[in-house]
Simulated scan of single mutants.
Amino acid sequence: MKNKNLILSVLLLIICKFGFSQMVRLESVSYSYVQVVNNEVLLNYGAPTTMRVSVMLSKPVQNPWGSLPVKGEVKLFYYKNNQEVNILDPITFSSADWSLPTFSNFIVKDFTIPANTVTTTNPKIEVLAKWRYYKEGYPHPDNNNGWTDWYNGGSTNFVLNNSTLPEATFTGPSQICNEGTFSVTNPGTITLENASGIATLSSLGNNQWKITRIGTANGLVKLRSTSNGKTFDKDIEIGIVAKGSISGNAVLQLGESQTYTLALNGNTDYNWSVTYNPNVTWTKLSATSIKLSTTGSVPMGWSENITISAQAVGSCGTSSNYILKTIKFVNERDPRLD
């Protein structure tokens, strides 16, 4: 009686694990020779992607099932327009694919996913696995020979590989006085960044966009293409913006003259100004340089900050921002005299 109970317990364990309706099970599906990130398979943009799939199955080891022949198929597919699309021919398996009593060998197939299976507008597909097996001489209740129904075996996401997205390229001006037209190759979603109150963006169709300046506003904006989280930018100057830095000595000693310069950066001129000080005079030498000189006298140890500012002037108007440099006007004893 004890042995009979043990046999019944073993049979119940087999039934719980395998179920009479699934004497053969699909245990694992894995992909290799392809990039897999966070359990998602990455597909190339606009090009085929070659990879390898490995499947492993299991079957009961206890008799009578352990000695019965095994034959079946594994199918990998995704849905498109509510229709199944196979990503390769069904993988077949038989008793020859087992070297262990319970688990099969890995059954390996190489295959290629066609280009444009995923796109920037449809960047993901869910690849599902199904399996079935052929019943041949199986005991009750699987004693009707023939194919089983297809059983669901889980899924894996195949997604667009962002690193293979082509770079968006922009054709158009780098500075706009009123409006400018831009053509974008490989555009994603096109936006205009940092443009509030400065410029507007409108689509012209055929991968062309127009940027329009708002009144006399000045600023730096970015025309941006975003594709599946990857961004490409073109920097555009709206109106005129003073850019760069003023070079020159940070200290102006009483009795000295110093020259301060700034690159044009595409502008035609600069309006210069210097904080008023009766002991400091300045002269504009050119569009990009001025000379500061000191006159009169101040007490020994004198120190005062003076700010130089430059406002850009060009064909698109005058900048609303200034380039600033603060220098220190001092009267200090020359240490060489000590």
Rank of each mutant, 00 (worst) to 15 (best):
V10F: 01
P69A: 06
D110K: 10
V70C: 12
T121E: 12
L12T: 15
V70E: 02
I91A: 03
S67K: 04
V29F: 05
Y31A: 09
F77H: 11
D97E: 12
S95L: 02
Y45N: 08
A96V: 02
P90I: 13
V41Q: 02
W65A: 12
N105I: 03
L57W: 05
L88C: 09
E27K: 15
T121I: 05
Y79F: 09
G19D: 10
K4L: 11
K75Y: 01
T121V: 08
V118A: 03
P90D: 12
M56I: 10
L13E: 02
L42R: 04
N116S: 10
L8Q: 01
G46W: 09
V61F: 02
E84I: 08
I113P: 00
L76H: 12
V55F: 07
E84A: 09
Q62Y: 14
A47F: 10
T50F: 08
Y79E: 14
E40P: 04
K17L: 12
V37K: 04
P48D: 15
Q22E: 11
P69R: 06
S32A: 09
I7E: 04
L88P: 03
N122K: 08
F111H: 11
K59P: 00
K109E: 15
D97M: 07
D89C: 02
Q35T: 15
V34N: 08
V108H: 14
V74E: 00
T112K: 14
T49Q: 05
K17P: 00
T112C: 09
T92F: 05
F106I: 04
N82S: 14
G66V: 04
I113D: 02
F18M: 01
K4A: 12
F103S: 06
I15N: 11
S21R: 13
V41I: 02
T49A: 08
L43I: 05
W98T: 02
K109N: 10
N44C: 08
K59L: 12
V61D: 09
I113Y: 03
S58P: 00
M51R: 01
L88R: 12
L88I: 08
S30I: 14
S28G: 13
A96P: 04
P114H: 13
I14S: 04
P90S: 10
N122Y: 11
S30Y: 11
A47P: 05
T49I: 11
M51Q: 06
V34G: 07
C16T: 11
R25S: 13
S30H: 14
F93N: 03
N116F: 14
N38M: 05
V37G: 00
P60Q: 15
K71P: 00
M56E: 12
S104V: 06
Y33G: 07
L100P: 00
Y79N: 14
N63R: 12
S58E: 07
L13T: 14
Y31K: 04
F106V: 07
K80C: 00
V41R: 03
T119N: 02
I107T: 08
T117V: 02
